[in-house]
Simulated assay, not measured.
Amino acid sequence: MVSLLRTIRSMRRVGLREWFRQMQYIGDAKSGRFVGMDEFGNRYFENMNAEEEIPGRHRWVDYAQHEYNGTQVPPTWHSWLSHIRLDPPTEDPIVQNVTPHWKAPHVENLTGTRGAFKTYNTTVPKINAWEPKVTPRGTSSL
């Protein structure tokens, strides 16, 4: 009964369309404070109401892409989602001041896709396959 009330409360807060989208993507109806957005368009939320959320599940990400995976979350946001950092990157002065400008931008892991890194093999094989030497018919060496 508690989860049904929580679901109805969340549906009222976020609206029917967003509630339906959440049920399709994360399988749960959640409502909370919008914390920030990363460079990929992922949105991050937090709900500190202890009556509604299970401890440890009060922070979540709403992915921008339909086909998503965990590597699309930048390291700074991942540390906030996993409770390594108390404040989100948008509010944490340490993250905003210490992040070096020379650092390469975060790229998701493309393993298993067309964009995956594949090395070009330049080594000579140690074992060569047998190739038969055939003389053409009609020409005999006798």
Rank of each mutant, 00 (worst) to 15 (best):
E39L: 11
W60Y: 09
P75W: 02
M48P: 02
E51R: 13
N47Y: 09
S79E: 12
P74I: 05
D87V: 02
M37Y: 03
F34Y: 15
K30G: 06
D38K: 01
F45H: 12
F45S: 07
L86D: 13
Y68T: 05
P89L: 08
S82V: 06
P55F: 05
D38V: 03
N47L: 08
D28G: 11
E91W: 04
I54C: 00
L86S: 10
T76P: 03
R57T: 00
N69P: 12
Q65A: 01
Q96T: 03
L81C: 00
G56P: 06
A50D: 14
Q96R: 15
T76W: 14
K30I: 02
P88V: 05
T90A: 07
N69V: 04
V61T: 04
S82L: 03
E39A: 13
P89R: 02
H66W: 09
P88N: 09
D87F: 04
F45I: 07
I84F: 00
E67H: 02
V61E: 07
D62F: 00
P93G: 15
I84S: 11
T90I: 09
E39Y: 05
G36W: 02
H78C: 12
W77C: 05
P89N: 01
E51Y: 12
L81N: 09
I54H: 05
D28K: 15
T71R: 11
Q96N: 08
M48L: 15
N42H: 08
V98F: 04
D92Y: 05
R85H: 09
H58Q: 11
V35C: 14
N49W: 02
A50Q: 08
L86H: 11
V61C: 12
T90S: 10
K30P: 00
V98G: 01
G36D: 06
S79K: 12
L86E: 07
